[in-house]
Write a protein that binds this DNA or RNA. Structure first.
Lengths: 155, 155
DNA sequence: GTGATTGCAAACTTTTTGCATCCGA
DNA sequence: TCGGATGCAAAAAGTTTGCAATCAC
C-alpha cells in the first residue's frame, strides 16, 4: 500500500496523518504474509518510536481495518491478528481474500489464494437471497513435516 | 447426542459423570443450530441448577470440545461460541462441518452444509503435502431482508 | 486556534486458575 | 476412600476508555 494513497484515504475520512499511523502502516508492509498480533506490532513499533502507546496501536489498527487496508483475523488462540488486505477489485465489490491452512500440531499457517467458492456463493443467493461480499476459509490439518514426524513416532 | 454414549465417552477418558456435565450436554441439545456463548449456557444452566458456577461451564465446555461433542467457533465479536458438532463419519476421518453466512448488517447467522472444498483440499495436498482434516468457512454479506431494507433506504 | 490524536493508567470483558470442599466410582 | 470435579474468588490476558497534554492542519 502506497503511503500517499493512505494519506489520501485518511483525508477523505477527515482523519489526521500522524507519525504513529504512518509507522503502523509501514510495519504492516514490512511483514507481508505474517499474521501479527497487536502486541507484535507494538513491539516492532517501539523499536522505531519508543514513546508509542499500546492503545494507539489498537486505535490505529481499528482505523486500518475500517479503511480496509488490513484484515482482522483470528486463529482462535486468544488474540486477534492483523494482516495486509488485498486490494479490492475495480468495482469495489468482492474482495480477493486469501485463506489459511493451519497445522494442528505445530501451528504453522500457510496462506493461499483460490476462488473455489463461487458456486457456493451463487447457491446461497438463489436459496436464501444472501449476497456474499467477503469470505474467510480456515482449513485445519497437518503439514508435511508434521506428518513425517508423526509417521516416525508411530514406528 | 445420546446421554449413554456421552457417559461412555467420559468413562473411556477416566472422567467422571457429573450432574453438571450432563446438564451442559442437555442444554446444548436443547438449542440445536444456535451459537451459544459460555454466558448463554451459564444462564440456561442456572435455571435448572442455581448452584452451578461459571468456571464449571468453561471447564465442561472444554471437555466437550476435546471429546468432539461440540465445536468452538468465533464470529469475532469478542466471545467464543459453542454448538453441537456433527457426528464424525464411520472412518473417524474428515468431519462434516457446516458453515456460516453472517449478515454484516443485522448479525443474523445462517448455517448450511455443503462440501465444495474437496478440490481445494486435494490441491493443498498435492502442492504442500498438507492434509486437511477439518475446515471452517465464514461468508460475510447481506441477508435478504437487510438487502430489501437497504434498497428502501436508498430511495 | 481548535478539534482530533496521543500516552498513560485505570477499567472492562472474557476466560483461566488456586484452593478448600465435595462427590462419584 | 481418594482422586477428580466443583464453586468461589482472585488472577490473567487482551482490549477499550477517560482524560489531560499534545499535535496536525
Amino acid at each position: 500500500m502506497n503511503q500517499n494513497v493512505f494519506k489520501q484515504m485518511l483525508k477523505e475520512k477527515n482523519l489526521k496523518v500522524t507519525r504513529q499511523r504512518l509507522l503502523v502502516l509501514e510495519l504492516m508492509g514490512d511483514h507481508p504474509g505474517e499474521h501479527l498480533t497487536a502486541e507484535d506490532i507494538y513491539e516492532f513499533a517501539r523499536e522505531k518510536d519508543p514513546e508509542i502507546g499500546l492503545a494507539t496501536i489498537y486505535r490505529t489498527l481499528q482505523v486500518l481495518v475500517e479503511l480496509q487496508v488490513i484484515d482482522k483475523i483470528s486463529f482462535d488462540d486468544g488474540f486477534a491478528r492483523y494482516e495486509l488486505g488485498h486490494v479490492p477489485d475495480g468495482e469495489g465489490q468482492t474482495r480477493h481474500h486469501h485463506h489459511h491452512a493451519i497445522c494442528s500440531r505445530c501451528g504453522a499457517v500457510y496462506s493461499f489464494e483460490e476462488d473455489l467458492l463461487d458456486n457456493l456463493e451463487q447457491s446461497l443467493m438463489e436459496r436464501l437471497g444472501f449476497l456474499v461480499v467477503d469470505h474467510e476459509v480456515k482449513l485445519f490439518g497437518y503439514c508435511r513435516s508434521c506428518r513425517e514426524k508423526m509417521k516416525e513416532e508411530q514406528s
